[in-house]
């Protein structure tokens, strides 16, 4: 799970997360003109709804993050959109602490934007790759990036967390597979039904 509760992460990591989150949100807000606001907000609401849906995987279930899809569709504006979603989850459901919000936002939004933009680059060159492949890169890649960053935030917080961080990173593998398949299917549909959304 990507929501780190309060009290675990060390102060330097907290501060680094807050700086990255503030920078990313600032960049995203600059692109969030009044004309784009409804689109970003509706998608941000959609990602929140998607995160309520649990997917069966073997005996357990995972819930979607859809960070890669958000980055692909919104670019840097995905940063504030993901931040809103995480604030709501922390406040309403207690998923993730208050002071670590910066770290949690950075861990999810940074890989989401970077791999989403990579996915968008692939989509723009249909000769090079099938749309489904762009979905695998953005969807699966963003989850892998988040797993790495969560593990890193824990490992940097103290030597004693290193084993736990590795164990945690492994738990992301099922979600990575589900999101890769899910995002690929979704993009395949979007290319056919509403290709202008991807431009």
């Amino acid at each position: 799970m990507a929501h780190i509760p309060d009290g675990i992460v060390s102060t330097p990591v907290l501060l680094a997360g807050a700086v990255v989150a503030a920078g990313g949100i600032g960049l995203g807000l600059r692109r969030l003109t009044p004309e784009r606001l409804p689109k970003v907000a509706v998608l941000s609401a959609l990602f929140f709804v998607a995160s309520l849906v649990h997917f069966p995987v073997g005996l357990t279930s995972v819930h979607l993050m859809l960070g890669g899809l958000a980055g692909l569709l919104l670019g840097w504006a995905a940063f504030p959109a993901i931040a809103v979603g995480l604030i709501l989850q922390a406040v309403l459901f207690g998923f993730g602490g208050l002071l670590v919000l910066g770290v949690n936002i950075a861990n999810i939004a940074l890989p989401a934007v970077l791999l989403g933009l990579a996915g968008r680059g692939l989509l723009a060159r249909p000769a090079l790759a099938h749309p489904a492949f762009a979905g695998v890169v953005a969807g699966g890649g963003a989850v892998a990036g988040t797993a790495l960053m969560v593990a890193l935030s824990l490992a940097l917080s103290g030597r004693e967390f290193q084993v736990g961080a590795q164990a945690l990173a492994i738990t992301y593998v099922p979600l990575m597979v589900v999101e890769a398949v899910f995002t690929a299917a979704l993009l395949g549909l979007l290319v056919k039904v509403k290709p202008e959304a991807l431009r």
């Binding site: 969030l32 606001l37 409804p38 970003v40 907000a41 509706v42 941000s44 609401a45 959609l46 929140f48 504030p80 959109a81 809103v84 979603g85 604030i87 709501l88």
Partner: peptide, 8 residues
């Protein structure tokens, strides 16, 4: 953005 998201 927050208020719009909550609404939708």
């Amino acid at each position: 953005l927050f208020l719009f998201t909550v609404r939708y």
